[in-house]
Design a protein around this nucleic acid. Structure first.
Lengths: 194, 194
DNA sequence: AAATATATCTTGACACCGGTAAGATTATGC
DNA sequence: GCATAATCTTACCGGTGTCAAGATATATTT
């Protein structure tokens, strides 16, 4: 049984993952730096060697969650046989909503104080954009841009699609929502009927 | 210049309104009981004669905001010449989104920890429901129920409509969203194209 | 009208929180 | 091997929600 070393080793990533654990356990609202520190077996001010403040840690955790979401969305795209079929959009939307249904705490956490930028217009710098949204934009551009749809119309479609899907996720992850149907089936219908 | 009386007189409603002022001034995240008390010129524990705890005050404030929203939505309905025209739904949706665009802090505040219930099915007790949602349900029921639309289809329509509108409000009130078009015009198009 | 009871507000205190300052411990580069 | 930098700890500060006990005003009863 070795003594606990003075240096943790990889505290930065441990703090991020401990924060994620606590968010899933008790929700983003109850998260405190001190609890994260306790879970990592480290003093209350240790994080300040790796993050400027709590906001900074939260931002790193948001990137962590966003990457998980991106993997899910990219898998959804790859699972489609025809990449130029608008059905890809349904799959993306479905995966987006289901991701948050499976991790209800993530929705509040990601969007309660969103740090990432969202540029709703098709041109402009996409590198700083919320990656899932940028992904949606690129798919619409690939499918309908090739078909000659005017840019204005594509922008409307992107906003409308994301609003619906994001709204569904928001509603589905609310605590006091009662719904006796199967979301997975309904989501597809709802996106489809748009 | 009269001395401040020991009893405030109408502290309960004053606390609610002071809380609303502070939320509009610095956001729901920064709100503290003590600040509300200071704004009312009262000690830190005075609220506990009127509310069980902070949650309880926040809940009362949510009801306060919800009533403002309801007034806006009811005005929107009344402004429609033909109450059986589906155009009423567009007007409701537009007013819903614009309300939150005009009061960006309210969206986070109302839905960050929603206290009210949302029953997505058409039957069941509507009295405990989030009133704006119940209003939407009743309008859809009135317009399309009379036209003989099956209940299942109306439920899909309600969820889809609310998801879109709620999602639009969510996106439009995000801090880091860049959009150079006029929301008021776009919203109508987007809801319309559904 | 006086006495009692109740509602309302204050003071004092506690544990928890995010954050700063100064110092201890370990790793790194020359 | 020594100096420097990175990492972690202890001590402390102001702010927060909340409880306990007491002060003050209003309401009720007699």
């Amino acid at each position: 049984m070795p003594n606990k070393p003075y240096h943790h080793g990889n505290l930065r990533s441990s703090l991020i993952e401990a924060g994620i654990v606590l968010i899933n356990r008790e929700g983003a609202k109850q998260l405190s730096l001190r609890k994260v520190c306790a879970l990592c077996g480290v003093s209350q001010t240790a994080p300040y060697s790796h993050f400027r403040n709590k906001e900074d840690l939260l931002e790193a955790m948001q990137h962590y969650v966003t990457e998980q979401l991106m993997e899910v969305l990219e898998d959804a795209i790859e699972s489609c046989p025809d990449q130029s079929d608008p059905f890809v959009l349904i799959q993306i939307g479905k995966s987006y909503v289901l991701f948050f249904i499976r991790h209800p705490q993530y929705f509040q956490f990601l969007f309660s104080q969103p740090i990432m930028t969202v540029n709703l217009s098709l041109d402009g710098d996409g590198t700083k954009n919320f990656p899932p949204f940028e992904l949606l934009k690129s798919v619409v551009l690939r499918i309908f841009g090739a078909a000659g749809m005017p840019k204005e119309k594509m922008e409307d479609m992107i906003i409308s699609l994301w609003a619906t899907v994001h709204g569904l996720a928001s509603i589905a992850t609310m605590k006091n929502v009662h719904y006796d149907k199967d979301w997975e089936i309904k989501i597809q219908d709802i996106i489809w009927n748009k």
